[in-house]
Amino acid sequence: MSAAPNRRPFDVGRAAYLTLNALLLAFLLLPIAIVLVFALNPTPYISFPPVGVSLRWFEKFFGSAEFMNALWLSLWVASVVLVLSIVIGAACALALARGNLPGRAVMTAFFMSPLMVPAILTGLALFQAYLLSGIGRPVWGLIAAHTLVAVPYVIRTTLAVLHNFDRRIEEAAAVLGASPTRVFFEVTLPLIRPGVFAGGVFAFIVSFDQFPVSLFLVVPKGETLPVVLFNYMKFDLDGAIAAASMVSILLALSVVLVLERLIGLKAYVKL
């Protein structure tokens, strides 16, 4: 005969912990739920209870050349920013972590500074600089501005990986005959990749959702999605905004999921 299982006494702390988690989750997900209801709502205003389900706002969003141009521009800009910021960010992080540079703390603070300046000021300052230097507002200027605010995210995540990096692994490769270049591509890069890509995900989202920096730097007919949405809202506050938000959320989510699949955030945790 087996012994009766021990009954676990009711644990107040655990119950509180679970409740808190549930509340946090609700706090995070509720706005998305409201946006979804608004997006599927047939009326141009939120009505409770919903009077029906309709895809008319999605149709309006996908049918509008203005929205579509803006969406493609945003995706394109965010993709370029993703590539640029992982290259620049990883290089900066390596230099900061490994470079044995004088005033490393100051330089780290300098590279992080775009995060500390309000983005609207970064946008305004760059706008002024571009105009004064006669550059105008080309799309690469917008990409450069987005990269400026996206790079610190890559530096942060890459530095985190480098912080726990056992340099003996690189030394082992060198003893085995790998030149510094080969050490970098065979060992260093594969091992810091999860950190770099995690930063890249942030960089993509920072650019794709970027509003304050873009505000001054977009040109007529070359406006990114957040700017178009903001201006649209001033004249037509209808479900197309919500539909656009849902599309943005899904796009950002799929980027995260694809990168997770490709490189695996598990590897990141293990390092």
Partner: peptide, 14 residues
């Protein structure tokens, strides 16, 4: 070239 993106005045000021 028609700019529909606010804010117009700050851009003009700069």
């Amino acid at each position: 070239s028609a700019d529909q993106a606010f804010p117009f005045l700050p851009k003009l000021q700069v």
